[in-house]
Nucleic acid binder design. Structure first.
Length: 282
DNA sequence: CGCGTTTGACCAGCGC
DNA sequence: GCGCTGGTCAAACGCG
């Protein structure tokens, strides 16, 4: 299975301050510019600057439209890929499971739900006995050999093993809040795509995230389809993704928007762009 | 010196 | 019962 296609959901927006006025067609920018423009017009009505603002507004609107189209296209691609993947898994039902004789509960919980995150499908009775299990796929730099997944929580590594069905080592982590928090995490590179880390979470955190910022600022990793934060990125419970929901594209959109607005680099670029535009127009 | 990581040893579940 | 395998432990080690 090749993850490289469906994981490339990044908008890849260039937030370089030098170019940001061309690359960030956010409605937020538009509204800000509008608001600023109105204020400015009230104070100092110049036909010249008014014309420039109208032109700028047109340009930003066009960019916003373009971005919307890109997003629509991306969602369509996502749905197509998802369909292909479901079809593939239907045709090869034992491809993923056949390679290992699953032990204990993991076997019944790792049924391949083919997206960025899967979740335990155990019954209510089983869920009372077994910790909730979910998966997250994280794209990393191919040259990055570490098995670190920035998910906002602090983890303590307690072991590493090379498993039979995957030449890449599997790292074992416990939540650093243990023993009060018994959540465990296993991280291993995908056997099909070495640039993809597969993080398997067991259990639920009983405490808030120590650091939300690490998710977006800690590294250059691209959290691909981390639907563990699909409901709200501000909520601490983040290990119960619902990937079967037909609203997944909307979730993706929300997550991307959330990531963008939380990204300090993006915010800085936004501020620089607006400031630069204001100075330029003055 | 304290804390986190590494890594070999050990344990337990499962199939034969 | 034995061997294989995944998961965990804990001493050694490194780093700040």
């Amino acid at each position: 299975m090749d993850y490289s296609s469906w994981i490339s959901t990044s908008l890849d927006l260039n937030i370089n301050p030098q170019r940001v006025h061309e690359q960030v067609p956010k409605k937020e920018v538009e509204s800000n510019i509008l608001a600023l423009g109105v204020k400015k017009c009230c104070v100092n009505v110049k036909e010249e600057s008014e014309g420039a603002l109208v032109e700028e507004l047109k340009r930003v609107s066009a960019e916003n439209k373009k971005l919307t189209e890109m997003l629509t296209e991306m969602c369509e691609n996502y749905n197509a890929l998802r369909s292909n993947l479901v079809e593939y898994m239907r045709k090869n039902p034992d491809k993923e499971l056949s390679s290992s004789k699953k032990r204990k509960s993991e076997g019944s919980n790792n049924d391949s739900i083919p997206m960025g995150v899967s979740e335990s499908s155990s019954t209510d009775e089983e869920s009372c006995k077994k910790p909730k299990i979910s998966r997250a796929y994280v794209r990393t730099e191919p040259s990055d050999t570490s098995l670190i997944v920035k998910d906002g929580y602090q983890w303590r590594k307690y072991g590493q093993k090379v498993t039979r069905d995957n030449p890449s080592p599997r790292a074992y982590f416990k939540c650093s809040f243990a023993p009060s928090c018994l959540v465990k995490k296993k991280v291993q590179r995908s056997v099909d795509d070495q640039s993809v880390l597969v993080a398997t979470y067991e259990g639920e955190h009983n405490h808030p995230q120590p650091s939300q910022m690490e998710v977006t600022t800690g590294s250059n990793r691209c959290m691909t389809l981390d639907l563990t934060k699909s409901k709200s990125t501000t909520h601490s419970k983040n290990i119960n993704p619902k990937i079967e929901s037909p609203q997944v594209p909307q979730v993706l959109v929300e997550q991307m928007a959330s990531s963008l607005t939380k990204d300090p680099n993006f915010r800085a670029a936004l501020v620089a762009a607006i400031s630069g535009k204001m100075l330029h127009n003055n």
